[in-house]
Design a protein around this nucleic acid. Structure first.
Lengths: 219, 219
DNA sequence: TTTAATTTTTAGTTTAATCTAAATTTAGTT
DNA sequence: AACTAAATTTAGATTAAACTAAAAATTAAA
């Protein structure tokens, strides 16, 4: 099935929204995610549902179909592989790659993606710690919990970030938190949810609740 | 100036056609090059001329403007850099890269192209021997003449091909002609324009007039 | 130099994707 | 249960890019 750029983007939005919450996704939520209007979403959902990429009942929200999820995962795969390429090979920082990958993810050539994957050494995670689906759409998420819900004296490794916006990523760079950093929780403040942590057994750091909630670690 | 995909493609077509012949390009020639209809071309030329990217007088054909040439050259630069990437890094053969580069050339990110250029070591020529314009649109074509018009016992190096179609490139691969090959002309047949040549001082080969006209060498 | 053939343009449709405004459905609250 | 507020869909317009068919301009030929 050949999808237009707009169709791919809507499908991706539906996929992402259903991945992180309910299976039924609301028209408004999609409009918000896509920076567009609800009317446009309704229209597109009607069309995607004709192509059986989503299940759609008027006024009831949409649910992604198997075919739809498969297509969305291929776009996600391409997006994340390109992000790895940009960071590993072209020396971009992790806060710069999303926009460019948004464009590159729509390039249509299965062979290109196969070769790119080989060239990069079959990476399993992108620069933000998100898993890269394989050719069949399979992937394994690393077990990850927000730094904010670790216990005192817990040791953990930063495996991903929840918020991938440039401002947040740049903030992490500035304070010295990066993917793979070893983190020990030294103190948690009840009052405002802020924490004191130790990075790589060297640097003590105070971080806000907001930061702690958006940094994901394994233990 | 932000150009749509269609605008970039038309501009490129005008640029290529004026590069290899007259400065005035006909509506029909563009339609042919773009696999579209003359009516669509007229429409687009009107729009491109409003943006001052081409000079256009009804019924008189179009001429690319300075701004237009600048824009076209940036697209050409991107196309050829991506071709180098595909061949050098992703191990594509020279007959496979055009279609994919047609898509990649429209990715919009000056920084991406800067980094890609660095990553590739600032290549001057693409896998077909065509010159890659720099950031300012400057480039130097290698002096090149068709193999068919070399003299007997002339030595030359293959620097480019005139025809870049997959069938022709695959044929060259099959008979053992490649970019950089050292070629000596052994014999020229008046009757049909075919030639006998020696490749890399080792392999004797008979080639047709058609092949000889489309292989370009320096001497 | 008039006519015929060719090329090019215009006019009018079509499709995908968007929008605004109006109508409709669902959900929440007395 | 009725009403209001919010969410969603429909209707109607708009824009970019294409097309076909018809009109107009240019070029070539008699």
């Amino acid at each position: 099935m050949k999808l237009s750029l707009a169709e791919e983007n809507y499908l991706k939005a539906v996929y992402h929204l259903s991945a992180e919450g309910e299976t039924e996704v609301s028209t408004n939520a999609i409009a918000e995610e896509m920076q567009t209007k609800a009317a446009s979403v309704s229209d597109m959902m009607r069309r995607l549902s004709e192509k059986e990429l989503v299940h759609y009942k008027k006024y009831q929200g949409v649910r992604i179909s198997n075919d739809g999820a498969r297509a969305a995962l291929q776009v996600v795969r391409k997006h994340r592989l390109w992000e790895v390429f940009l960071v590993e090979k072209l020396k971009f920082s992790w806060d710069q790659v999303h926009e460019i990958a948004e464009q590159l993810e729509h390039i249509k050539s299965p062979l290109l993606i196969k070769r790119l994957d080989e060239f990069l050494g079959h990476p399993k995670y992108d620069p933000h710690g998100d898993p890269i689906p394989d050719e069949n759409g399979e992937f394994k998420e690393k077990p990850q919990i927000p730094l904010s819900s670790t216990n005192l004296n817990d040791d953990g490794i930063v495996v991903a970030v929840k918020d991938t916006s440039p401002v947040f990523l740049q903030h992490l760079d500035r304070i010295g938190i990066y993917l793979g950093a070893k983190i020990k929780t030294i103190e948690k403040t009840e009052f405002d949810g802020s924490m004191e942590i130790l990075i790589d057994q060297k640097n003590k750091l105070f971080i806000s609740k907001e930061v702690a909630q958006n940094v994901l670690v394994t233990n």
